[in-house]
Design a binder for these strands. Sequence first.
DNA 1: GCCTAGGTCCCGTAC
DNA 2: GTACGGGGCCTAGGC
Lengths: 248, 248
Amino acid sequence: MRSVIRPEPATFRTLFLRALKKGHSISMHCTCRVEYKGRAVSTLETGDRLVIIKPDKTVIIHQPAGRNPVNWMPVHSHITLDENIIRVESVNPREFMTIHLEKVLVFLSSPLTDGASLVQAGSEADMANMIYQNPHVLGEFVPASREEQTAYGFIDVFGRDYNNNLVIVECKRYKAGLDAVQQLRRYVEKIKKDKGKEVVNGIIAAPAITENAKKMLEDWGFNFIKVEPPMYLLPDREKQKNLGEFFS
Amino acid sequence: MRSVIRPEPATFRTLFLRALKKGHSISMHCTCRVEYKGRAVSTLETGDRLVIIKPDKTVIIHQPAGRNPVNWMPVHSHITLDENIIRVESVNPREFMTIHLEKVLVFLSSPLTDGASLVQAGSEADMANMIYQNPHVLGEFVPASREEQTAYGFIDVFGRDYNNNLVIVECKRYKAGLDAVQQLRRYVEKIKKDKGKEVVNGIIAAPAITENAKKMLEDWGFNFIKVEPPMYLLPDREKQKNLGEFFS
DNA sequence: GCCTAGGTCCCGTAC
DNA sequence: GTACGGGGCCTAGGC
């Protein structure tokens, strides 16, 4: 572990290359200019920033404000140090970044070890599971399959209503917008066409829906049902994939 | 500017609170556990991470791998230190995060000053500008308005073909997918309906298009035209906003 | 490798 | 404030 304030250029280069080679995590506060060329082109003129280099060769540059990095390079980039210039290169997508160091204010490196991974609940998939296990939240709904792949995308939950009509459910963990309705519409049209069904019902299951989306939903004869995403871990039930039988 | 390896708890608290108060940028490598509750809920068990706290009270936590933070809190959060626990609270959206510090491996803070902002080219807006200034790239196309916010939505480029039919152009800086086609379809349908036009043509202008999207595009009688986003800064031409006249 | 869709998406912009 | 769409989006999951 090393931490050096205002290292001399030679010292910095030694520390930097050693940390890079050993796979340590590097954090440095520095004054620099950044050039990027790849999917777009950009220049960031001189200023003080935080530069992060991870053992997996991800490079992230943060200005002193905002949640998102101002510049970055993806995992598994190729990193070299050329005098006071850090050159970063990526193959796929093909992109380049150069960090022109004017001053290294602080250099810091440590061998961080982290075996944990985030355990999380409240996703759209959790919602789909919850509906599948508690179909009554959608009223007259009998679930049949979950996370079904179609040529036009994934369908969250599949089922029938009490009149035996097909029902397609699109879940959103947040307030549903126009895009959610379009997505549902795409699935319904595809199923109607492919299966030659006259009536296929569509449901948006979400905690809320925007005005415009509600209107478009009604224009297409679909329904919105208010459902909150479950904020707890559900018991893992084996996925049921039987669309073939379902349609027989 | 401070940099301390393995600070004592009391020392850490002093340094942390002082940096927070002074609006310095904090970067620390530490062993910690993280709990989050808000739009979702999550737990990240103990491991070594980089914790960033910015002067604008953004909090970002990075594991030693991957481009994205594993946990974060938005700009303008409320941050307090309670013994060895950093508590972070946000009002909108309402969320909470706690960082349970086990060991501070390195603490680092500096008063970073950065007045620069990213200058970038190659965006979708750049594409729309380029098409507006060089309409011949779309063939028989006469542009009329650009990036027009109308009751029908945000349409990239508007115009007519040589038969005087309305044309709506949707630009994508990357390969266009199903969502792009549906977006175009929505705009075209809206214009047709609201203006009582029989024929409204739709164009996807993008460097490429997926197979399924191409198929859906053709099903709806729209066209794809290959256009690359301009990777250089265009001369800024004043926006022409005359949709009202255009439709008269 | 491509395609599709989710994300504690973030972010700007128009209303 | 909400709504809508872009992003060098990133990332996971299928094929």
